[in-house]
Write a protein that binds this DNA or RNA. Sequence first.
DNA 1: CTTGATGCAAATGGTTTGCATGTTT
DNA 2: AAACATGCAAACCATTTGCATCAAG
Lengths: 146, 146
Amino acid sequence: MGGDADTVEDLLSRLRAGGQRVTTARRAVLAEIVAAGSVHLTADDMARRIGAEHPDIHLSTIYRTLDALADAGIVAVARFRDEPVTYHLTDDVHHHAVCTTCGATLVLEPDVLDPVRRRLLRDHGFVADPHHLTIGGTCARCARDA
Amino acid sequence: MGGDADTVEDLLSRLRAGGQRVTTARRAVLAEIVAAGSVHLTADDMARRIGAEHPDIHLSTIYRTLDALADAGIVAVARFRDEPVTYHLTDDVHHHAVCTTCGATLVLEPDVLDPVRRRLLRDHGFVADPHHLTIGGTCARCARDA
DNA sequence: CTTGATGCAAATGGTTTGCATGTTT
DNA sequence: AAACATGCAAACCATTTGCATCAAG
């Protein structure tokens, strides 16, 4: 399923290497993100899930933790449509194609962007590192029905 | 400079065709969007600019106008980093490459995405119509300095 | 004249922050 | 012990909404 070899403890040690402390909240947040796999969680989603086990972990702590994890380059931020911001592991690079008619979502391998990357490098010297793009369009089913 | 032949009155007649009314506020908003060209404006930007001439046009009206224009397919919504939502003409298709180090922005012609579109069509039957993608990476200058 | 658009003020909702306290190192 | 993370409540900011009034058709 992709480079999902990341364990919570691995990631925590990356945090620690960055001079940050390891706490229950941070472990819990990372556990949720790892468990979610390619499903995208909002801060609130995490708060609700973590709350079952740790009712004392406050939403603001989750935001602060996500900030720290983002600073450390461990998680990346993504926006879907108008929904709240979501977070996912930086190591889990992929893109989405979203059907603007029915909302269906396709997960795309990162290499679909390779031609674009080559062109940006050639034409502009720009080293593209696209994470989590969302490409709109019409899915096969909706295109057929049109 | 792209298909910038859209005049405010052209666009207004599209609005009218959609059963919407044409008002001073709507004319003013469209005028700003057209004038801005490929610069992206937030609702607040427009409020400030329009306010010089029409101090009575309220920010909430601008939001409602932008909603109407978006429903009519005349303007499209785009998000930059964490900044507020920006609006641009739907006819003005382009993409961006943003340097995650220095924030520099490159405007990309729509055809840079063509290889991706072809691949999505071939592999998934997905008819991509990407508007205003933002591709992260490192610009030439920052890559050199690294 | 009728319906839809606007101004204003107040509500909303996600996210951030100040501060005192608890925890990691 | 010192520095940093947390809980809580309050602040923030972009955006939305209710309602009475005004203007476009």
